[in-house]
Each structure stands twice: as structure tokens, then as C-alpha cells.
Design a binder for these strands. Sequence first.
RNA 1: GUGCCCGUAGCUCAAUCGGAUAGAGCAACAGCCUUCUAAGCUGUAGGUUAGUGGUUCGAUUCCACUCGGGCAUACCA
Length: 542
Amino acid sequence: MKKYLHKVFEETAKKLEYLNGINITFDVPKIETHGDLSSNAAMLLTKQLKRKPREIAEEIISSLKIDEKVIHKIEIAGPGFINFFFTPEFVAQITKEILSSGEEYGKSKKHNGKKANVEFVSANPTGPLTVGHGRNAVFGDTIANLLEWVGYSVDREYYFNNAGRQMRVLGDSVRLRYLELLGNNIEFPADYYQGDYIKDIAKSLLDEYGDKLINEPAEGKFKDKAENEIFKDIKASLERLKIIHKIFYNENSLYEEGKIKNTIDTFKEKGLAYEKDNATWLKLTELGNEQDKVIVKSTGEPTYRLPDIAYHITKFNRGYDLMIDIFGSDHNATYPDVLAGLRALGFDSDKVKVLIHQFVTIMYDGEVVKMSTRKANYITLDQLEEEVGSDVVRYFFNMRNISTHMNFDLALAKKQSDENPVFYLQYAHARICSILKMIEKEELKASTENLELLATSEEQQLLRNLHKFKDEVLLSAEFFETHRICAYLEELAASFHKFYTFCRILGTERKLAEARVALAAATKIVIKNGLTILGVNAPERM
RNA sequence: GUGCCCGUAGCUCAAUCGGAUAGAGCAACAGCCUUCUAAGCUGUAGGUUAGUGGUUCGAUUCCACUCGGGCAUACCA
């Protein structure tokens, strides 16, 4: 529908030159009586032309050349909106396009040929993934899906660090549990990793080596074993949610390949780094940030900023057109430094999009559950997945704008799992599948021969929603918002359920029945495609 | 103190880069199954969009201040 109007306006702009001066957009009005599409062009031109908006609207309308078979009414409403009413026949034609594109329907070639990298999860292997990581994981994977739908070739990447203090403490935690199992009386430090998984790892080392590891250092077999086991679990947790990273990037390789040193040298050559108090500082003030920051500590170890910058340089060098970083809000202070550093080195930091999600507050029966991997009082992503299933987890984390602070009451989620919106969508899909099976027995088929018969308000509403899908995918990808897809699908499913209730197929005149089957089949495709983007299953039966 | 995010119905959240009468789900109440899945549909009720000003044809959206919450504010990552 929009495509048609854009064409018409382009033609008209040749006559009314002032139309070229504004960005003409068409919105779907909230209220049905305001038409199928609406333009605020006249209002936007008020200031520029110094004329009344309704008067401008009149002039625009009288210059438009439209096909009566496509648009049957145009009116001026309110302060100067131009509302377009499409003919039911035209609206119904979308069915054909959907049926012929099938699984491809909704994909676009807008960014064909471009490469994107989505870095997400990136939790260090010190413990199982928590519910808190779930939001990051699900959102990141869905963003990657969305980018693929608009044409990008996407690499999913996981950045991790298996060195440093955290990992030393991890190894030593395992070592102490191991010694404990050998009958030693150990005082286990409060700031060590308390979780039972540490004991499990210690146990499997005991089974494998007996008491031969008594004198093994914490950073030897203990750390290695812990890292391997934990990573295995993390990957398994992600896989249960259909999340598979293509690249695991080890921070250590930045050191081994000399990339850290190169980065410092470059900063120094450009006069952007200096020594003070035995440490190396980055002149961020010169780059427009608030204060200078340390990039190499007086101990000689870099702070996180330096490897982060070096890491992003590798992404640039790998040729990505778009690099997405997905972080929790605890990172909100760090990325401006990294971006400024990249800019200073001549990289186009606009290609890096940092998406920050707010934290999930986990509640249990109204009580806030504080999460800490160290203290092991967390709820794991696995537990959540077992409790409510992968579909609900994925839908739940996708359905909210990432900038909201999300409250999640686990006890409530269990109780309400039957009434979760994801079932509403899946139910619509299952109902359609059931119709499609039924019509075989009745010797009916889907037919697009007489689509103009789809003229009731329920049918037209459903059709109008089908029209929106492509735009929703594009907008969701452009704004990096997954919740739009959820909101859209809920609207679509609602209009289908209404259609289902009021527009029967059995007992209806054959031509109309077959047009309705076609409409149902098209709806099935769009629901399924939408759920596919979200990574949620579309069951044939429920 | 400063920076970022947030405050919308009893609860969880939407609202198309400023649009028309602020919408859904859950919870509550009243209806609808001898024909395609009642995990559905129809209806009722629920709001000073935290507050006060400002910007303009028009503000939940932008700006300023106030109140309240989250996250940061390291030579931790």
C-alpha cells in the first residue's frame, strides 16, 4: 500500500514542487475510521508555505492521480491529515504475494552484500549462565536474526577472557573443594565461588586423578578443567535456546598476537597516550570525553579499555559494515571511552552500535532475588528453561523494550504459563494448521481467484495486518527492537482469532470458502515467519 | 555529587525517529461451544501518562526543574 502511495506522490511532486522539500511518510492510523494510511505532509508544510494545513491538503489531493480500483476515498481530517482508503479488492491482493513467497515472505534485500557482527553473551567462564544473561543472549540472537532478514550476512560472536584474577580465584575454588574431598579440613573463603558446580568439577577431577593433584597449582589443571566444564555447560544452555555462536574470540589472543602492544604504540605515535604515576593514560579529554583514563596500569597490565579497543580493531579489520555490542547496563560507562579511542585511530565508530539492556529483576513470590555468580544465589538460565520452556524464555525476553527495567516473578510465570502471550500466537498457528488439514477432507483448496470476496471487517482487518509485516521487520531491524515483532504478532493473532470466530469456512459458499482458506494460509505463513525471527516454534498442533 | 536508563490502568508492559479518542495481556465482573481447536470470542470496569513549568497547529514522546527507582562513577572486567 505504501509503495503505491509513494509512487503517486513522486508523480505529483513534479507538479507541486514544495512536496520535494519534505520527507513524506505514511502511517497506519490507530483508528479504523481514519483510513488505511495517513499522511501528515500538509501539516509539515504549514510553516514553510505559511498557509493553512487543510488548504494545502486540498491542493495536494486535487493534484494526485490515483486509480479508483486501488483507492476509493481520500479525505482531509482533523488538523490536516490526508487519509487514504484502499479498496477491499486491492487490500486482499497481499494474499497472493504471501502465498507465493512462503518462508521468504518478509525478508528484504535492503542490506544485501553487507557483513554484520553481533557480539553477545560474552560471559567469562566462571559459572553457569544466569537468568540475567538470558536477556542478553536471547536479545542478541534475535537481533542477529533480524539483520539476516534484512539482508546482512551475520556472524554471532562470543568474546571471553580466560585469564586474570577471576579465573585464578575460580581455579583455586576448585582446588580447595578438591582438597576438601580428600578429607582435608578447609576453610573456604567467603569471596570464592560458592556454587555446587565447583564441587562437581572437583569431584570429577578426583575421579580422574585420585589424589595425584595435591600439589597441582590452582592455575594448572584446576583452572583448565573448570573452564572446559563451564564452557561446555554454557554452550549447552545456549543451544537449548537455539543460540549458536560462530566465533569464540579469546581476549588472550590479542596479547599473543601483539595486538595490544600495537595499539599502545599507535596511540603513542599519535601523541594520544602519555605516562603519569608509572601508568599509561589515554588522552580522552582531547577526544571530547570528560577525563583521561588509564590504559596500562603501573603493574604493566592493561585495563579493560585497551583490549576492548584492540578487539574492535580486529572487527574492523575483518571487514564488518556493522558491529553490534550487546551489554548489560553495568557497562554503560565504559563504551564511550572505547568508541573515542577507535575514532582517534581513524575508524568510523558509527559502524559500532552499542545496545544496552537494563537489568532483569528476578522476583520470587514478590521477593527480589539478588543475583551473584560468586555467592551462588542465582537462578540459572537452565532452571528457567526447564521451568517454562525455551519458547516462553525467548518470547519473554524479546517482548520488552530493552531499555525497560524488567520485573520477572518466577512464581507467577509458572502459574501463568498457560496464559502467556506466546501460547496465544502458537494457538493461532495451530488452529490454521488444523483448518488446512480439515479442508483436504472437504475437498476444498486455497484459491486466490476470488479474493475480492474477502470484504467483511474481520477479513479486511486481518489483511491490513498482513500488509504491515514487511515494514515491521524493516523497522525492527533499523531500530534494533525485537519487541515490535512481538507486539505485531499479537495484533495479527488477535485479528486472526476474530476472523476465525466470525468467518466460518465450512458451510460457506465455495468461492468464498476457498478465498478464506487462502487468507488463513497466508496468515499461517506470516505468523510462522515472525516466530522464526524470534526463535520461537510454530507448532502444528496444541 | 556527576553520567546513563526508567517512572503510563491493581500487576506486567505497548503506543510507528512529535500525531487524531493513550492501547494490550493478566487479575475482576457479565455473556458465547449439537458445525473448522473455548489455550478462543463478545461486552463491562479500570488513567490528572510521578509532579510543575516551557517549546508548537499538536507532547506519554522534546527541554528545564522537583520527587522516586535501577546501573555506573577504579591503576576490577
